[in-house]
Design a binder for these strands. Sequence first.
RNA 1: GCCCUCUUGGCGGAACUGGUAGACGCAACGGACUUAAAAUCCGUCGUUCGCGAGGACGUGCCGGUUCGAGUCCGGCAGAGGGCACCA
Length: 856
Amino acid sequence: MSRYNAREVEPKWQKTWEDGNVFRAEIDRSKPKYYVLEMFPYPSGKIHIGHGRNYVMGDVVARFKRAAGFNVLHPMGWDAFGLPAENAAMEQKVHPGKWTYANVETMKSQLKLLGLSIDWSREFATCDPAYYKHQQKMFIDFYKHGFVARKEANVNWDPVDHTVLANEQVIDGRGWRSGALVEQRKLTQWFFKIADMAEELLTAIDDLDRWPDKVRLMQRNWIGRSEGARVTFTLTDPKHKSLEVFTTRPDTLFGASFCAISPDHPIAQDLASKNKALVDFIAECKRIGTTEAAIETAEKMGFDTGIKAKHPFVEGQTLPVYIANFVLMEYGLGAIFGCPAHDQRDLDFARKYGLPVIPVVIPDGENPKTFTVGKEAYVGDGKLFNSDFMDGMSVPDAKRAVIKKLEAMKAGTGTVTYRLRDWGVSRQRYWGCPIPMIHCTACGVVPVPDKDLPVKLPEDATFDQPGSPLERHPTWKNVACPSCGKPARRDTDTMDTFVDSSWYFARFCDNTATLPTNKEAVDYWLPVDQYIGGIEHAILHLLYSRFFTRAMKASGYAGVSEPFAGLFTQGMITHETYKDPDGKYLFPEEVERRDDMAVKRGTNHRVTIGAVEKMSKSKKNVVPPEAVADTYGVDAARWFMMSDSPPERDSEWSDSGIEGAWRFVQRVWRIVGEAAPALPAPGAPAPASFSPAALELRQVAHRTIVAVTEGLERFRFNTSVARMYEFVNFLADYKPAGADGHWALREALEILVVLMNPMVPHLAEECWQALGHKALVVHTAWPKADPALTRQDTVTIAIQVDGKRRDEITMAKDADAKAVEAAVLALETVVKAIDGRRVKKVIIVPNRIANIVVER
RNA sequence: GCCCUCUUGGCGGAACUGGUAGACGCAACGGACUUAAAAUCCGUCGUUCGCGAGGACGUGCCGGUUCGAGUCCGGCAGAGGGCACCA
């Protein structure tokens, strides 16, 4: 019996599958369809283990579903536009397209190495004009259907490089290359009007029952529906007569001690036009950056405008109006009233500027005369006080009452707002899908006519200077207005790459369609039955795709509203990060461990070991899969990736453990090879009866079918693996005797091979052949467990006395509770544990546990 | 700061829906086989007390609910993800 040689065996079967077009998917209405999709990769250079786990997981599902009788679609493509290609262009003087396609080549061969059951005929890259042409077409259709708007938004501006920076490129408020303090600039940009769809996207979450609850919750929170009120304050300023604010706590209006508006609020902007101090203040607010995290963690700052707002209910009471850095223009109305006693941010602000803190809600049981708010705002439930007509009301009653009163006075109205903002899609970059719009001084914004699509990126762009290559290209932007024919200019922005990934799953249904989608194909294949990807995409990518699919449906390109019926979010693969003395990241293979320290390989340079973080190219903490596959074979790597961590959990990559997977591969091969010569022919009729040993083997085999199948269905790949280990351990000890024993062994080995096929498909084919089969395992149906063999006749019941385990007893399954009680109380160990005390209660949980509660 | 997770032996983890904590794998240790090594096979493996039978403790920490909590509730700590221009 020769050793299993993965290097020879694996390419052989990959060729067999490829030559036979085994994974080509076609519409076939005689079978139920199953669309399994892993989030497609950005071609950053190389596949790492984190990707590998994702794709192997999807492949296990695809192969399992195929065996279970489904018509499976399992495609792959490339999320090929993005910032790293442009950075590479600047650093390495290589065109982004060339860089990207080179990476695609590398990564495709790596994926092929993994033996994935992918229909490669459907492959495409989003940077191909044949793909983005359709995206431009849909952009225009969405524009015509009212899903697109044009408005101003803030961007990070690097004043030295004259470039718009991504949030990632802003480090501690400075540009990553220039080191200049980043400013915010307003630009007019294109938006998808996702906010208009907030309610629809929110309520539809209820029906996504095959999505993880945590993702549904995150999306709900992101959309952030909140009921509240708009309140109009009359201002003392001669120019600005009134201020409208949004609040979720109108009930606390009597506790208001100030109003605050965003630095972007029109009133703030107007006041700044004649106030130098205010200009400086706003500039300082802007320096914090555009990210919510930065704004929320920054120290609260306010600028007193001197304007006063009149309290709507209290005659003569006025509130100072501040401009404050923590008020976002994008949320609500960009203006609030502050009630420090019942909002932490307002409290921090009030303490800093010496504003009054008046509690108006009191927790039950507190004395209104002595109740005060110190360092912590009281945000809980309670009864209103200090609040005139609301005194004594609960918070919800008070909200209703105050809105009613405001409406009667025409000083406000009840309203619903959402945290979700419109999706800004304009990017001042080269390597993206050009926005197919033309700006004409006479006609305004004019869409590019269909016949002129695609608007292709110019090949001869330059990357040797900062700024937008499209903007500075000498000729590209000059174009005749499609409407009046006079000279006009193209939009020089490209689309956010999230647009590319918001519909690729629909294009996979037919990547040759002349329209963006082929209606017959999308109606057949969509929605994706099982979508698999990292939890880091739980909000943006998934929400954008849900929006985009709805917009496609409205434009006639899709028949469904929800793109992903089932979602599995896998945990991230993490690894330590390493930095050399210059602070540059190092790859793990560049690092050498010496005792307690780490040094750069081949040198004595001390390496700093940083945090354990998700594998990413920018941090270099990646492990390529080939190293593992070269040594142990792809199947061992696949098996190991599925065996250790539960897939939804983050896990830190370690090299130990892969040897165990390799031993498993060898062991299965040895067991099959040693047994094969003595087995009956494939398909031999079953003997009439079985010896006890043969029967036990059959029971173990059939119980393994049940357990492994359930594990795969529930994405518990690691427990399926454990059950197969147990099965193999049992098989290794099994000594067949007689014809029945050999028949049972063939049955068991065939079950094992088919069950392990989704995870170790090359080994499975090789074993299947060794067992005398001519057909491929990939064409073999999933085994069905025989209920007569999986039935359990006896059970072990644990016995507790006062909740402490004392003994166990084997009983017939579903034995009568009275019989169990009698048997348990008769046991010597139990009598001893009771020790003569009075038995208060006996709890019998059928087939599980007996607990005897005694007097203490 | 806000939202969402996670925390079980030396390590990865198992434990259906509140019912025998530690399946399975890794590492380690002891032994068999071998001239030797590799491979393979057998065994031990949460902590602690005990010669032993057996007992006590034990699922990040503090508290609660329950006959019974890794699992449910409240609080705390640590780690990770997201926060709208990384993908």
